[in-house]
Amino acid sequence: MSERITAEDVTHVAGLARLELSDDELERFTVQLAAVLDHAADVEALDTEGVAPTAHPLPLANVLRDDVARPGLERAEVLAAAPAVEADRFRVPPVLGPPA
């Protein structure tokens, strides 16, 4: 099996991405991600010394808008989409867990 990525790596990445994997998924994803990374490894062979990275295919720069206010959305419509609302704000569970 490929050494590209371990189950621990996959668990760590899932944490960063706020996903939880079952044992079954963890095993499957580890194998599948390793296969994709193995395939991607052929780019490693390519000499890219001195090659500038391309973040974007367009040669545009300085796209700006004027600092002029435009009407936004109705609060009622915005809050209607929210899973939970209180006092005209978006309600979420406590942001940090209870004190350790």
Binding site: E86, R89, F90, R91, P93, P94, V95, L96, P99
Partner: peptide, 17 residues
Amino acid sequence: HVGGGGRIHEADHSLVD
């Protein structure tokens, strides 16, 4: 942060604007 005297650690829940 609502509840727990407004302290983030003890809050019951939070509201976002």
